[in-house]
């Protein structure tokens, strides 16, 4: 049996702490929709190559926080974000930031599958084309194939790439949207309840996919399914009434959370 001295354990833990690298940093993030405040000074960092789940009851601010990470809130009238959000140390709300380029680095998958009314091929090729990622048709073909493979959809659609993306099943459409998101080689993928419109089999496929994507991407997922958060994430952040209640290892949050509100929420005891 290998017994480490207390000092050695401490050192190993220290090293582990220092090894954590944060892909995105959120500092005192507050969001207002007009006069209404939706987020209160949230401090939450996103670890690299980690799946972070945001949980909490409806209206708690988890989707709002998710959307600040690639400035999706910019499109909402009267929405104001304060505080600092950084991607690899650079403030993403800095005026010099090109939002289109930011969203290529921080991609998004929505609740309802929303493929373009175009062919399966075009759905995936669209992003790489506008960002100039492929010079030749062969390069584009390669990107499309790789993206569809990463999304676990290639084998199902390789013989019908020219058919419309909207003709696929719901689960396939969602994986097409994930292929579309990974096609521009983002660094972070935001997922806003990606499985809430899917059946259990399609959900399991997407969860398997999230597990595989983690090796190459940093993932932040909003989900209403406690079980899903417990299954797919390594870190979990619990929101309530616009505040971050606690953030910790997923294993800890779902077995013995520190905060009573988290405990009540995950056990279905709110009230």
């Amino acid at each position: 049996m290998n017994i480490l001295s207390e000092a050695a354990v401490e050192k190993a833990l220290d090293k582990k702490m220092n090894d954590v690298s944060y892909k995105m940093i959120g500092q005192d993030v507050s969001v207002y929709y007009g006069d209404k405040r939706a987020l209160y000074d949230v401090n939450l960092n996103v670890r690299e190559n980690t799946v972070t789940a945001l949980i909490g009851p409806s209206g708690c601010g988890k989707s709002t926080f998710l959307r600040t990470l690639n400035r999706m809130n910019d499109t909402i009238d009267g929405c104001r974000v304060t505080g600092r959000i950084a991607l690899d140390g650079d403030d993403i709300y800095d005026p010099s930031i090109d939002v289109v380029e930011l969203r290529a680095r921080v991609g998004m998958v929505f609740q309802k599958p929303n493929p373009f009314p175009k062919s399966i091929y075009e759905n995936v090729a669209y992003g790489p084309r506008i960002h100039g990622l492929a010079r030749t048709r062969a390069e584009m073909d390669a990107i499309v194939e790789k993206s569809l493979q990463r999304a676990g959809l290639w084998n199902e659609v390789k013989d019908r790439l020219q058919e419309s993306g909207t003709g696929l099943s719901g689960g396939q459409q969602q994986r097409l949207c994930i292929a579309r998101a990974v096609a521009v080689s983002p660094e972070v993928i935001l997922m806003d309840e990606p499985c809430s419109a899917l059946d259990p089999i399609a959900t399991a496929r997407v969860e398997e996919l999230i597990h595989e994507l983690r090796a190459n991407f940093t993932i932040v997922i909003v989900t209403h399914s406690m079980q899903q958060a417990a299954r797919v994430s390594q870190r979990t952040a619990m929101f309530h009434l616009g505040q971050l209640v606690e953030e910790n290892d997923t294993d800890k949050i779902f077995t013995n959370p520190d905060d009573q509100r988290t405990q009540d929420y995950i056990m279905g005891r709110f009230g």
């Binding site: 009573q260 405990q263 009540d264 056990m267 279905g268 005891r269 709110f270 009230g271």
Partner: peptide
Amino acid sequence: MSSTHIVSIYD
């Protein structure tokens, strides 16, 4: 226990 479940039959 602090509070009851939303689904009372669980309790």
